[in-house]
Computed example of a mutant assay.
Amino acid sequence: MKFEYALMGARGRMGQAIVKNQEAFGAECVSELGRNISEVKELSKDCKILIDFSLPEATPSVLAFCREHSLKLVSGVTGYSNSQIEDLKKYSEENAVFWSPNMSLGVAIFKHMLKSLNAAKDWDYHLHEAHHIHKLDRPSGTAKYLQKATEDVVGKEVPVTDMRGGGVFGVHELYAMSPEEEIQITHRAYNREVFAKGALKAALWMQAKDKGFYSMDDMF
């Protein structure tokens, strides 16, 4: 039996990629939402989750819609403010919320690899990211996510640089440098499918959750 979901940002590139890949995960989009979200009053009784790939500005409308229809939320939105993240966490006390600025397994593995840098806290670090010309937030949400994760391990500020150009889906490179040697960790996304599949996998995983605030760290 397919699980039903509503999709915010359905007409965007990520929304289209999610719908394209839904069948492989036994999922069906029953409501495509956009700026009209506040006007949608009816929803299939079997729809229990909303996948959101819109913009941070839509957060109040998205959370209001989730409350009205008692929906779990899977968000891949980047660029949230601290107060918006707190709003998500507050809603997670009522219903389950999954948020990750990057839905790929590769980035989750990247983050876990950072733990080994505890042995090289005195090295120099630099994070660089590149995305397509249409990417609005810079540095990217993923870059900020990896920056904080690295800083938590090495105990000092890690600078970030960014580049926008062409059709690059997403590249994140961390340089760890000592006077004698260098380590480079790179994640490169080849297409949007990896993020769409990650979001659908998260939505499927969330079916068994009730309340709580979750991320990729919890799923893998």
Results as ranks from 00 to 15, higher is better:
Asp218Ala: 06
Trp99Ala: 02
Tyr190Ile: 14
His69Leu: 11
Gly15Asn: 01
Tyr190Cys: 09
Gly79Val: 05
Ser54Gly: 13
Gly170Ser: 03
Phe213Met: 05
Phe53Pro: 01
Met113Ala: 14
Asn82Met: 11
Pro139Cys: 11
Arg13Asp: 11
Gln16Ala: 12
Gly34Phe: 04
Ser104Met: 04
Arg35Cys: 05
Lys211Leu: 09
Val77Ala: 00
Leu88Cys: 08
Ala143Met: 05
Thr150Lys: 00
Ser44Ile: 06
Ala10Ile: 00
Leu33Ala: 03
Met219Gln: 05
Ser31Pro: 03
His187Pro: 05
Phe98Ala: 06
Lys197Phe: 01
His187Ser: 13
Cys66Ala: 07
Ser178Lys: 07
Gly76Cys: 07
Lys201Gly: 14
Asp218Glu: 03
Ser140Phe: 00
Ala120Ile: 14
Glu39Ile: 02
Pro179Val: 07
Ile183Asn: 10
Asn82Lys: 15
Lys41Ser: 12
Asn82Gly: 14
Lys201Asp: 13
Ser70Leu: 04
Thr161Gly: 13
Val62Gln: 02
Lys2Leu: 07
Leu55Ile: 14
Gly170Met: 04
Gln84Ile: 01
Met14Phe: 06
Phe3Ser: 06
Ile109Pro: 04
Val171Met: 08
Asn21Tyr: 04
Lys121Pro: 01
Gly34Lys: 00
Asp217Cys: 02
Gly106Ile: 10
Ser92Gly: 04
Glu86Tyr: 03
Tyr175Ala: 14
Gly106Lys: 13
Ser75Thr: 12
Ala143Val: 03
Gly165Lys: 01
Ile133Thr: 15
Ile109Asp: 12
Val19Pro: 00
Asn82Val: 14
Gly212Ala: 09
Lys211Trp: 09
Lys121His: 03
His128Ala: 13
Thr150Ser: 01
Asp87His: 08
Val107Ala: 06
Cys47Glu: 01
Asp46Met: 00
Ser38His: 06
Ile185Arg: 05
Ala189His: 14
Asp152Leu: 10
Glu68Lys: 14
Asn21Lys: 09
Gly15Lys: 01
Lys20Glu: 12
Glu86Lys: 13
Pro56Glu: 06
Thr78Met: 11
Lys121Cys: 05
Glu4Lys: 15
Lys121Ile: 02
Lys2Tyr: 09
His69Met: 04
Val77Cys: 10
Val40Lys: 04
Val74Pro: 11
Ile109Val: 13
Asn21Ile: 00
Ala108Gly: 15
Val77Ile: 15
Asp210Arg: 12
Ser140Asn: 05
Gly15Gln: 04
Asp152Val: 06
Ile18Leu: 05
Lys197Tyr: 01
Asp137Gln: 12
Lys111Glu: 14
Glu93Cys: 08
Ile133Ser: 15
Leu71Thr: 02
Trp205Arg: 05
Met219Gly: 11
Lys115Glu: 13
His69Arg: 11
Trp99Glu: 00
Lys41Ala: 13
Lys197Gly: 08
Ser100Tyr: 02
Ala24Cys: 07
Gly9Lys: 00
Phe195Ile: 15
Lys72Trp: 05
Ala10Thr: 03
Met206Asn: 03
Gly106Ala: 12
Phe110Pro: 06
Leu204Ser: 14
Val74Lys: 05
Ala203Ser: 12
His112Pro: 02
Ile185Gly: 10
Asn102Ala: 07
Tyr80Thr: 06
Tyr5Gly: 00
Phe25Asp: 04
Tyr125Met: 12
Ala10Tyr: 03
Asp152Ile: 05
Ser83Cys: 09
Val74Cys: 08
Asn95His: 11
Glu151Thr: 05
His131Thr: 10
Glu193Asp: 15
His126Pro: 09
Ser215Ala: 12
